[in-house]
């Protein structure tokens, strides 16, 4: 079988009101230029975005699911990082 398959790219879109680029899916493209154009046609046909990022899937590094405990659980106990941890008298405003 032929191997003319183009590399896989991950697509991130920022919507008009959105603050962040969000992952929306993937597609195939031979280079970044065409990846952006394909992303425009595939993922913004209904005005879903005003900015696109593409990253070759091979360049994405992800946390290992088996490390999830050691990566993420330690922060669960550090509740003092959240404002609700602290008590403020009733009359205090703008805080």
């Amino acid at each position: 079988m032929s191997t003319t398959q183009w590399p896989l790219w991950e697509v991130f879109i920022r919507s008009k009101q959105g603050l962040n680029h969000k992952h929306v899916g993937s597609l195939r493209a031979p280079d970044a230029t065409l990846a952006l154009e394909n992303a425009r046609d595939v993922y913004t046909r209904r005005s879903e975005g005003i900015s696109i990022w593409v990253v070759e899937s091979a360049n994405i590094h992800a946390t290992d699911i088996d490390d999830a405990d050691s990566f993420f659980e330690p922060s669960d106990t550090k509740i003092y990082r959240h404002p609700t941890f602290y008590e403020v008298p009733d009359g205090v405003k703008h805080m």
């Binding site: 079988m1 032929s2 191997t3 003319t4 398959q5 896989l8 899916g25 993937s26 597609l27 195939r28 595939v42 046909r45």
Partner: peptide
């Protein structure tokens, strides 16, 4: 487009669109 979204989903499982 829908075909493409779905092929993308299969590729997250290690499948290959062309195959």
């Amino acid at each position: 487009g829908h075909g493409l979204y779905l092929y993308s989903a299969t590729e997250t499982l290690g499948a290959d669109r062309e195959q």
